[in-house]
Amino acid sequence: MSTGAVLYAGAIGLFLIGCYAMVAERHLIRNILGLVLVESGVNLLLVAVGFRENAAAPILKAGQSAGMMVDPLPQALVLTAIVIGFGVLALALALVVRVHQAYGTLDTREVARLMRVEREASGPGAAGPRAGAKS
């Protein structure tokens, strides 16, 4: 197999495994790990797009002219994308901490059920205290 086939297969594989973990798994942490896998797959694809056979890393050495280099642009984009992914991941974990504190479970269906219960309980009453209504 050529390098290209391996890289593309790896990227698509990571992406699909991640999608599976996000859609089919019922545990919130696993969903988040799936998201990380999806992001890795897409980042790998982006780097692979800039690959050139027998090309140097895009750093100039002293006294050397720019020869054949891999495309530096996707590398810069991936750096940005990784940091963005990290920020989103940190926020997701912070939310998971609070969800777990509130509901005591990380099962997605259970959390969804408890959320519905909470909304229905708070729905009609939410405006109550503020409006001072009596019924």
Binding site: T3, G4, A5, L7, G50, F51, L73, P74
Partner: peptide
């Protein structure tokens, strides 16, 4: 999209 042959104009 042939691998390793992307146009990379801007790059």
């Amino acid at each position: 999209l042939p691998f390793g042959l992307a146009p990379m104009q801007v790059g």
